[in-house]
């Protein structure tokens, strides 16, 4: 099995596990973790796409996509955590 295929398969498996998490979990924090896992899966698929035949230069475009994707995912996660904290504080104040 080529390593590109291996990366893609692991990525697909991660997405599948994450999908289960998104639908089965109800707490927003757990859902957020599942979404992060899903993102990692998608990034692995992209990295798998970038690996090409030995001796040839790997394709830089998927790498650029993964880097941008990571930045977006990190900021979205930080934002979601901030919202979650604010929400739990408001809920505590309201009792």
């Amino acid at each position: 099995m080529s390593s590109a295929l291996w990366f893609s398969l692991v990525g697909a498996a991660l997405v599948a596990i994450a999908l289960y998490g998104v639908f089965a979990e109800h707490h927003p924090l757990r859902r957020l973790i599942a979404l992060n896992m899903m993102a990692s899966g998608v990034f692995l698929v992209l990295i798998g796409l970038a690996r090409q035949l030995p001796g040839r230069v790997p394709d830089p475009v998927p790498h650029a996509m993964v880097l941008t994707g990571i930045v977006v995912a990190v900021s979205a996660t930080a934002f979601a955590l901030a919202l979650l904290r604010r929400l739990s504080r408001v809920q505590q104040e309201e009792g």
Binding site: P28, A76, F79, A80
Partner: peptide, 8 residues
């Protein structure tokens, strides 16, 4: 929060 998780 619901909107954000869905959008992600």
């Amino acid at each position: 929060l619901r909107y954000l998780l869905l959008a992600l």
